[in-house]
């Protein structure tokens, strides 16, 4: 099972504990988490289902390439990190 971990910055607004998922792509992994925590979806994805501009997702230490369709493949034991890309102010 892969593990999806969310930035602690989200804890100010809602619960976002790590989740174990069985998934082949980043999109499937996130969708699996949002099934049980639907409120999280709008914090990570925009209205069209793409990654929000200032949210980053890393798998195996690298930023995912497909930020629109979230098609990057993941391995069964990958850690998927969802965190905020830097913005000022």
């Amino acid at each position: 099972m892969a593990t999806v971990r969310f930035t602690s910055a989200l804890e100010r607004f809602l619960r976002a504990p790590p989740a174990q998922v069985a998934a082949a792509t980043v999109g499937e992994a996130l969708a699996s988490v949002f099934e049980t925590q639907p409120a999280l979806r709008g914090y990570v994805l925009d209205d069209q289902g793409a990654l929000r501009r200032h949210v980053a997702v890393y798998v195996g230490g690298e930023a995912v390439r497909d930020r629109v369709r979230l098609s990057d493949a993941i391995g069964p034991d990958d850690d998927i990190y969802v965190f905020q890309a830097l913005t000022g102010g």
Binding site: G42, Y43, R52, H54, Q84, A85
Partner: peptide
């Protein structure tokens, strides 16, 4: 208007 996480 959250900078990272969108409009709420």
């Amino acid at each position: 208007d959250l900078g990272h996480f969108g409009a709420k």
